[in-house]
Computed example of a mutant assay.
Amino acid sequence: MRTKYLLTLIIGGASLICRAQTVVIRSHDPHIKYMGRVVMQDEATELSWSASSASINFTGTGVKATLKDEHAGNFINVIVDGKVISVLQADSVKKEYTLASGLPAGKHTVELFKRTEWTMGKVWLYQFALDKGSLTLAAPPVNKRKIEFYGNSITCGYADIDTTGQDRGTAPYENGYLSYATLTAKHFDAEFNVIARSGIGILVSWFPQIMPEMYDRNDPTDSESKWDFSKYTPDLVVINLFQNDVWITKMPDNPQFKARFGDKAPTEEQIVKAYKEFVKSIRNKYPRTKIICALGSMDATKEGSAWPGYITKAVAQIGDKNILTYFFPYKNTPGHPSVKEQRVMADDLIAFIEQNIKW
């Protein structure tokens, strides 16, 4: 009996020492604030969508995270106290990574921000671990304002940090943290969801999937994984789609053109109807949310383009005073928007919101 008692004391003491060395915050812990659509699994939280993130508050001098990347293809901004201090590319095997060390003693916030889109793969967060002597604080507060963006490569930040002019769409050159969507949300201190994929359209995409078939997913790779829209009701929705439709509807030899339209391009009536139906599906999810139907800043809004007019007609037919239109000026440069051009888009959208949205 005495031996058993001593063994219990030893085990208990070892446990206390372990807890004194590190404070572990597992993926389901309410001290973690998640932003974006994430999938809560038994041992980890799955981050897929662009701009999805996880953040904690703590007192201490250092923090680590245990992560795994599906293909080791994503880039994650490590943000400490509001500043990006490093960029992390996790391995395809589960590992612990030091996010920050040697911080001044006191209160800190750390955020992991997935800056690459879901086609680059999923990232699993298993836990945070704080250095010895640290304390976990309440999760970062919920922002008063909420925005949801539906978009394509422009919204994802495709090639925005490719300064060579090659317009490369691979992970090292895509940074959703610098897209107009993130910049706009940060200006308004708003939480935001980004539902986007490079190449996607409303009528047709460069691949079989279109936005009306993806917009309601939690896990974007799983058609059976449905998002619970009651979990997040935005004050504002921004839809920036049609750029890819502009191109593919003029390409009768494209396989996706053939799959969607056969041998005849969609008429103006069909285009307007498709856009109207998508906007109405968003309105059905959020009956009182303000919606901005945007387009640009690539050649869908260049002079002479009919596509802003299609959006204007669709919105007019819906007849909802809380659905507005905004068309980004054509940037008139090759490729996707650069960081500078994303900033211009954000400034334009911010000005439009400040003038037209009361929240």
Rank of each mutant, 00 (worst) to 15 (best):
R115C: 01
A100Q: 05
K122M: 13
V93K: 13
T109I: 05
H108Y: 08
L99A: 04
L103E: 03
F128D: 01
T109S: 14
Q127T: 03
T116R: 04
M120L: 04
H108F: 05
D91I: 01
T109R: 12
W124S: 14
L112H: 06
L99S: 02
K122Y: 11
T109P: 06
T109L: 06
G102W: 07
S101I: 02
G106M: 02
F128S: 04
V93E: 14
E117Y: 12
A129I: 02
K114S: 00
L112V: 10
Y126F: 14
T116M: 04
T119G: 03
T116L: 04
L103H: 04
K107V: 03
A105V: 10
D91S: 15
V93M: 10
F128K: 05
K95Q: 15
Q89C: 09
K95L: 11
K107N: 06
T98A: 12
T119A: 10
K114M: 05
Q127R: 13
Y126H: 13
F128G: 02
A105C: 05
Y97P: 09
V110T: 12
G106W: 01
E96A: 14
G106T: 01
F128L: 05
T119Y: 06
E96Y: 00
T98P: 01
T98C: 07
V123S: 08
F113L: 14
H108E: 06
E117R: 07
V93G: 01
G102A: 06
A90R: 08
A129N: 02
E96V: 09
T116V: 07
E117I: 08
E117W: 08
E96Q: 11
A129L: 04
V123Y: 01
P104N: 10
Y97V: 07
A100R: 00
F113A: 10
G106V: 02
Y97E: 12
K95Y: 07
G121T: 06
S101Y: 01
A90F: 09
Y126I: 10
F128M: 07
Y126M: 12
E117D: 13
D91Y: 10
T119M: 12
V123I: 15
Y97L: 09
K114Q: 06
Q127A: 10
Y97G: 10
Y126Q: 11
V93T: 15
F128H: 02
A100F: 04
F128A: 04
S101A: 13
E96W: 00
K122T: 12
G106S: 10
W118F: 15
L99Y: 00
H108A: 04
Q89I: 02
D91E: 15
G102E: 06
A100V: 06
L112T: 08
S92G: 09
P104C: 00
T98E: 15
Y97N: 11
T109M: 11
G106H: 07
L125A: 09
L103T: 00
V110K: 07
Q127S: 14
L103C: 04
E96T: 15
G121L: 07
S92E: 13
E96M: 12
Y97R: 05
